[in-house]
Simulated scan of single mutants.
Amino acid sequence: MSNIREDVPLEVSFGGPKHSADAEVLSDEDTVIRLSEAIARHNKQWAKFNGIGFDADGTPNRADAYQRWQQGCVIIRLRVR
């Protein structure tokens, strides 16, 4: 499980100044698989790092995304203040 907690604000930087942010840890099966596929589709490096391959038509492999969820993958949504 992630060491980021929803009730603890954090600071993030996207190459510039730091900003306060709230984190939402998404861990349910449907959400993690759906968002993993979406992220992988637009970020091939993230997909490779997370072991998500691509089908012949170029779509992220759903079985790989499911396996990552089974292994404890979560998605962290940040809301910058």
Rank of each mutant, 00 (worst) to 15 (best):
Asp28Arg: 11
Ser2Tyr: 05
Glu37Lys: 15
Pro17Asn: 12
Ser27Leu: 05
Lys44Ser: 08
Phe14Asp: 02
Arg79Gln: 09
His19Asp: 02
Val80Phe: 01
Asp57Pro: 07
Phe14Lys: 00
Val32Gln: 02
Asp64Leu: 05
Leu35Ser: 01
Asn61Trp: 05
Gly15Met: 10
Leu10Lys: 03
Ser36Val: 03
Gly15Ala: 06
Ile4Met: 04
Arg81Glu: 09
Leu35Tyr: 08
Ala40Gln: 05
Cys73Arg: 15
His19Leu: 14
Pro17Ser: 14
Ala47Thr: 08
Gly51Ala: 10
Gly16Cys: 07
Asn43Ile: 03
Ala56Cys: 06
Gly16Asp: 11
Ser2Asn: 12
Tyr66Met: 15
Val25Thr: 04
Trp69Pro: 03
Gly72Lys: 09
Asn43Ala: 07
Lys48Phe: 09
Ala65Asp: 04
Gly51Gln: 11
Ile76Asn: 01
Pro60Gly: 05
Leu26Lys: 06
Ala56Thr: 12
Arg41Ala: 15
Val32Glu: 04
Ser36Phe: 02
Glu37Met: 15
Leu35Val: 12
Arg34Tyr: 07
Asp7Phe: 09
Asn3Leu: 13
Val25Gln: 00
His42Gln: 12
Gln70Phe: 01
Ser27Asn: 13
Ala23His: 01
Met1Gly: 14
Tyr66Val: 12
Ala21Cys: 08
Ile76Asp: 02
Ser27Phe: 13
Asn43Met: 02
Ile33Gly: 00
Gly16Ser: 14
Asp22Gly: 03
Arg81Phe: 03
Asp22Cys: 00
Asp30Trp: 07
Asp57Trp: 06
Gly16Ile: 08
Arg79Ser: 09
